[in-house]
Write a protein that binds this DNA or RNA. Structure first.
Length: 608
RNA sequence: GCCCCCGUAGCUCAGUGGAUAGAGCACCGGCCUCCGGAGCCGGAAGCGUAGGUUCGAUUCCUACCGGGGGUACCA
């Protein structure tokens, strides 16, 4: 678990001393796991070590707590140590600790909340997310993976790891030919079959291709005859998460998916393949653009076609798996022994007709990533959960340690409007894509809505609700707190408020309960960030931001900073000293709010 | 059939084995002659059911009930 001692020297010292006390008392070693008591009156920090040591020490928890307290060399900064409840050891810190916090926050600025890992614990993490098929526009569901994957990447960086954000572009195989075929038919005004991709996006791609390449694009060209028997034949991939109502829009009907589909006789397969490659790139760029509007910028767009099939990586991977003795032939096909590693059945790598399966490409991709990173994180939608076991098994077959491959499944998103499912009318080609939702409600709302809920809850995204600028949208609550502080600072400047410098201000005047609560809330950020990163749980940080905003609003309501505009000189003078301390507290609180929002990559507006 | 996720306040959701289970919305009642009322304070209201493990279970295990998703030498 996150070690507060790595985040804060004062907590680090306390952590060390508790460990020493355990040793001196003859108790087993244990991580003190310093935490914030739920009730403020219990103190500033607490350890549960006694509770967890009760069993190994064969004593009751309160006795163990007493032993710890008896042997603890209490740090100077701790004013009070107490035992409470079943065996908590609570610490109340001297006021000086809180005063230091304000200075620490202001000094660290945007870095407050981030931490550094010791070299040996630092990981190069590859975070793969979204990876939607480039054969259609991004749906709302993909927005969830975009927001979540991006924020998790940010959290990991904040916790001291290095991160690569990666998008796997599934641009090889049968689906590309079919996509190209669809584009050709659309561009030449012919009817589409049930197996074809359709919708505004296809029309847009067709139009753009004609503009850039001319009509000759659709004529048979030299080389087009070579593509028959495409060696990459393969695959439609983990296409992000589709709303169930939307699946039919981008995925050919089930009946069409069995086996290599018969090519449409109206279009030369070579033309389809060539146009497909071009069209997919156009679509990919559009996806890239939408993600960019969402604030998500990938470091690597990994092309299956260029990166795996084009480099022989698939063959090399299959060869390695054979060498490792993890593959065997049966019925003319080649299978991977995934059942040795927890899968239900062995999976085919090479079909009996010699073509590699999609799974083979997946193995090659995993191997490629493992050569570039030492921790692999996959964020997949629940519609791909059936894929998890074989992916884990593939990693095991390739010799990747179990704890270095993390595959997380997120539940899907239901798109609603005023409680009614937004149904996709296939005939009308009516869909609601991610870019339209962003347009309608704004990036921050979309991102935050996805980030404040855990990955394993299904999210209802109701356009009617989310469009309201009210507390149905907690992001506004947090942003409002930030804007409000900014307004406060602005007003202070306008009135010529003399806030002095942080060095000279007397922060010991911050004694109001609302001030102390704000201070202790601010002190939590580094720990919250570390825990959120460790758990890959963005909602931890979002909920923290909401709590912090609430704590600030209470402080704001109860504690005046500026004297009233019509105050007498006496009132003004009286207010001045404490007002200065509060001013700096507000400045620090603004920084913490900005940092929390920044880690979620949600904007912290100066005014709204 | 098998696998995965969920079930916490009227609603939407937090809560990595610990103290009195928390927010928002909705409802009821209050709050500044003054720094942004997109705010603050108060009230009422809850762990699906039954077992088990544990000093301690919303949390872990089993069964059941209810809801959602997935199940291919497919692409």
């Amino acid at each position: 678990m996150a070690r507060p001692d790595l985040l804060d020297p004062v907590l680090g010292d306390l952590d060390t001393r508790i460990r020493e006390a355990l040793a001196v008392a003859g108790l087993p070693d244990a991580d003190p796991e310093l935490e914030k008591p739920k009730q403020p009156e219990h103190g500033d920090w607490a350890t549960t070590a006694a509770l967890r040591l009760a069993k190994p020490a064969a004593r009751n928890p309160r006795e163990v707590a007493q032993l710890i307290v008896d042997h603890l060399e209490v740090p100077e900064v701790v004013d009070e140590v107490s035992i409470a409840g079943p065996g908590f050891v609570n610490f109340r810190f001297a006021h000086r600790y809180h005063e230091d916090l304000v200075r620490q926050v202001v000094a660290a600025g945007p870095r407050y909340g981030r931490s550094v890992k010791p070299e040996e614990q630092r990981r190069a993490v590859n975070v793969e997310f979204v990876s939607a098929n480039p054969t259609g526009p991004l749906h709302v569901g993909a927005g969830r993976w975009a927001a979540t994957g991006d924020a998790i990447a940010e959290l990991l960086e904040a916790a001291g790891d290095t991160v690569v954000r990666e998008y796997y572009v599934n641009d090889a195989g049968e689906q590309i030919r079919r996509f190209g075929e669809s584009v050709v038919l659309v561009a030449t005004g012919q009817d589409l079959g049930d197996e074809h991709y359709r919708g505004r996006a296809i029309v847009g791609v067709a139009r753009e291709l004609v503009e850039t390449h001319g009509d000759g694009l659709f004529d048979v060209q030299p080389g087009d005859d070579d593509v028959v028997g495409d060696e990459t034949a393969g695959v439609q991939h983990r296409d992000g998460v589709l709303d169930d109502h939307e699946v039919a829009e981008t995925r050919p009907p089930a009946g069409e998916r069995a086996g290599p589909a018969a090519a449409d006789q109206r279009v030369h397969p070579g033309v389809s393949a060539r146009v497909g490659v071009l069209g997919v790139e156009v679509m990919r760029r559009r996806i890239e653009h939408v993600l960019h509007t969402m604030g998500v910028d990938f470091d690597v767009w990994f092309s299956e076609r260029d990166g795996l099939h084009g480099t022989g990586a698939v063959e090399a991977t299959v060869a390695e798996l054979r060498e490792r003795g993890q593959a065997y032939e049966a019925d003319g096909a080649l299978f991977l022994r995934t059942t040795d590693h927890g899968d239900d059945k062995d999976r085919a790598l090479i079909r009996s007709d010699g073509r590699p399966t999609y799974f083979a490409a997946d193995c090659a991709y995993l191997r490629d990533k493992w050569s570039r990173a030492d921790q692999l994180y996959y964020l997949l939608g629940a519609d791909h959960h059936g894929y998890v076991d074989r992916l884990r098994a593939a990693a095991a077959c390739l010799g990747v340690p179990e704890d270095r491959v993390e595959i997380r499944i997120g539940q899907l998103v239901n798109l609603l409007r005023a409680g009614e499912p937004v149904r996709m009318s296939k005939r009308a080609g009516e869909t609601v894509d991610l870019d339209e939702v962003i347009e309608e409600v704004g990036v921050d709302v979309v991102r935050y809505h996805f980030l404040r809920q855990g990955l394993d809850t299904t999210i209802d995204f109701d356009l009617a609700v989310v469009a309201q600028q009210s507390m149905e949208n907690p992001v506004y609550y947090v942003q409002y707190a930030h804007a409000r502080i900014n307004s406060l600072i602005r007003t202070a400047d306008e009135r010529g408020f003399d806030h002095g410098t942080l060095d000279e201000v007397d922060l010991s005047l911050l004694t109001h309960p609302a001030e102390l609560e704000l201070l202790t809330a601010m002190a939590q950020l580094p720990l919250v960030v570390a825990q959120a990163a460790e758990l890959r749980a963005t909602q931890r940080l979002a909920r923290y931001a909401e709590d912090l905003a609430g704590t600030f609003h209470r402080f704001y309501t109860e504690c005046r900073i500026l004297a009233p505009a019509d105050a007498t000189d006496e009132q003004r003078a009286e207010q001045e000293a404490v007002g200065r301390a509060r001013y700096w507290l507000a400045v620090a609180a603004k920084q913490v709010l900005a940092n929390a929002l920044g880690l979620l990559r949600v904007t912290a507006p100066e005014r709204m």
